[in-house]
Design a protein around this nucleic acid. Structure first.
Lengths: 112, 112
DNA sequence: ACTTTATGTAAGATACGACTTACCGTAAGT
DNA sequence: ACTTACGGTAAGTCGTATCTTACATAAAGT
């Protein structure tokens, strides 16, 4: 806990295969913990702990409904990650073409 | 190492603040290890180990040039993550509006 | 040839993440 | 009121990530 930033927390949350399995099951819509836990290889408390991590990272939201708690993917949390990576991709591509252009100009002198 | 999938490896690589600091310094373009290490809080071997993790995840590429090794962000690796998150965001948003619509229809019956 | 610079790797200490079982509340059903 | 289903938390174990210092290797400079 107590991460330096939200990006680190989100990335760490999504780096675990078990947590991403939970995310996959929530793509279609909200589910209670019992439905999430049944069918997974780990125990139900483990699922609870993973849900905690995902919630703390801002990737999930909970809505208690009677006896159960429905977890759903938080679009805002995912959007923050998308924004970061999209900008990173932009910069990386710009740096890539700049390096390629620089390389081409260096080769022009030594070309036939 | 030896992760089940590339997404996990990339996410785990980007979840570490030190590694993301390295990524930030590479946004503008390739840099050798010595330039990367100077100015960072951790030791140079630690930087080498982080570069190894990022490279294994497919997020960096190396081009040896004389005495030094220039590391650069691999656009392809970042693109794979962008694709995954963009699709996840699409599904999450669709599920969100579906849940909102379902909720609205339930309220219609109890509204005056 | 020798020295310096650049960088990867080995070995070891420490910290932390993920899993388990056991336990404790809270809401529903009878 | 009692029982059952749901789900969060505590304590403990185990694996592994991250850091350090020390060593090894390769290219450049003198």
């Amino acid at each position: 806990m107590s991460y330096t930033d939200a990006i680190s927390a989100s990335m760490l949350a999504l780096s675990d295969p078990t947590r991403r399995a939970i995310i996959e099951r929530l793509r279609a819509g909200p589910l209670p913990v019992c439905d999430l836990a049944c069918g997974m290889t780990v125990s139900r408390p483990a699922v609870s702990q993973h849900l905690r991590v995902l919630s703390d990272a801002g990737l999930l939201v909970v809505t208690p409904l009677g006896n159960r708690r429905y977890y759903a993917i938080a679009p805002d949390g995912v959007a923050a990650l998308c924004l970061y990576l999209d900008q990173l991709w932009d910069d990386a591509l710009a740096a890539y073409v700049a390096a390629a252009k620089h390389q081409a100009e260096k080769n022009k002198g030594s070309a036939k």
